[in-house]
Design a protein around this nucleic acid. Structure first.
Lengths: 247, 247
DNA sequence: CGCCATTTTGACTCTAGTCAACTGCCGTGG
DNA sequence: CCACGGCAGTTGACTAGAGTCAAAATGGCG
């Protein structure tokens, strides 16, 4: 994947615009679209990148607004959601480090995005990013792969929302978080829930009360242990997997 | 989009393998991925294409099987679905003429696909199709666009499944069919439902009974008229749109 | 320490699901 | 030609799972 080239990436990117975390050293890179660019060309990407810190609860993308930027989350958790006119909310996904936001290459954003925790991300102007695609076809390939995965995840979520019971939904959710933490090298057993019960409910198509009751039920059933706020220990992985599939 | 080139497309494609409908004349082409290839290069596509007729109720893609082929529906209706171990079914989408199947470029199919009506489609071996991508980067661009649209549709469906009432779901469904018929130049007012109530239920996350009751309710409310089997007239478009959004 | 947001719990309601019966339609075969 | 069987659709009666409303408990933070 890496070609032989002199790497003054550090100096190059700092010469242009002092990036707090140069792309070459970015922990999220291997997970994300940036990995499609060789080390020696990373300055091209760095040139159009601006690092953005987003405070908790800040809404930084609004459904229907012109889609001027794409984002790559490098730290924190983002919720992506849609609203119905009367305020009902459906969270379509949570983004963690390495996740890409703005795949829908349409004129306007299809969803809103809000920082669940403090978030750091790389922001690319859409036009300039699109221009990079011609020079680095690998990015396009990579985007297609990301889109594939998102589509598969969306289909799983449709099964969950359309056909699973509350207990199955919550189990599935906990397992998903556990697997994603494993993927990005995080702790897999005590699962960390950065989001509120309300957010979980809005993701699972339930109410806060039902989510809370289901957590209690899973706790009493010996499937999980609720530690400090936002920390869940999965006591019985395989039993939970059975639950999540309706066995 | 078209470049100047001699077009013996007819003879070329028939010289290779007699396609019943040469790509150049395919009605579904403008809607689909094939449009990314110029007329004069269509033989490259035709060479790896085989036209396939599929009987009603035939399952021609099975979740978990090696993803050997990609498909482009040129006629008929396909349901794409996932199953839970106990048989619960969630239909993730219906494919009409022009729709592409097999976007998830993973090793195995993520969903099963069954012909709802008699279906005609073009089938491409995945490996050979992938090889075309390097020669025709336009295809990749096009696929990314298709993936974008599918993702947006999936997100809308998540809102429907997670947050809408039965009445809102059915209204949304009817409007979607109407819009899609309009897109592909079909009749937009008397909407045609090629699928059964059970299929509609499995798409909307409801039961047959609820779907049936909701149709009756919409009929009594003067929103729709149920004609012969599978034909619905939308009597009051704007009222239906309000319904579908929860107003 | 005390406030406020979040979470949990309880009591009750209601939407959609379940089970069952009935209708209508179509194709098959006597 | 019509009787039969089977499937799709509709309707009814009842149930259950999740939602609603309200209040108490918990916990983080100034």
């Amino acid at each position: 994947m890496k070609s032989a080239c002199a790497q003054q990436v550090q100096s190059l990117s700092s010469g242009k615009e002092p990036l707090p975390e140069p792309c070459a050293a970015c922990a999220a890179r291997v997970l994300s679209v940036c990995d499609a660019i060789d080390d020696c060309d990373l300055d091209r990407l760095a040139a159009i990148t601006s690092v953005q810190d987003i405070a908790r609860h800040q809404i930084f993308v609004t459904e229907g607004d012109p889609a001027d930027h794409l984002f790559n989350v490098t730290d924190g958790t983002v919720k992506v959601y849609k609203l119905l006119p009367d305020g009902r909310q459906q969270i379509t996904g949570f983004l963690l480090a390495g996740d890409f936001l703005g795949l829908s290459f349409l004129e306007r954003y299809g969803c809103s995005a809000e920082a669940v925790t403090r978030v750091r991300c790389c922001r690319f102007p859409r036009k300039q990013f699109a221009a990079l695609l011609t020079d680095f076809p690998g990015i396009e390939r990579r985007l297609l792969g990301i889109a594939s995965n998102e589509l598969a995840a969306a289909q799983d979520q449709m099964v969950l929302l359309g056909r699973k019971t509350a207990r199955e939904r919550v189990s599935t959710f906990l397992l998903m978080l556990s697997r994603r933490a494993a993927r990005s090298g995080g702790t897999t057993d005590p699962v960390i829930l950065p989001m509120t019960r309300t957010d979980i409910a809005d993701y699972l198509g339930l109410t806060v009360e039902t989510v809370s009751r289901t957590f209690t039920q899973l706790k009493k059933g010996g499937f999980i242990e609720l530690r400090e706020a936002g920390i869940v220990h999965l006591s019985n992985l395989s039993a939970l997997e059975d639950l999540s599939q309706g066995f």
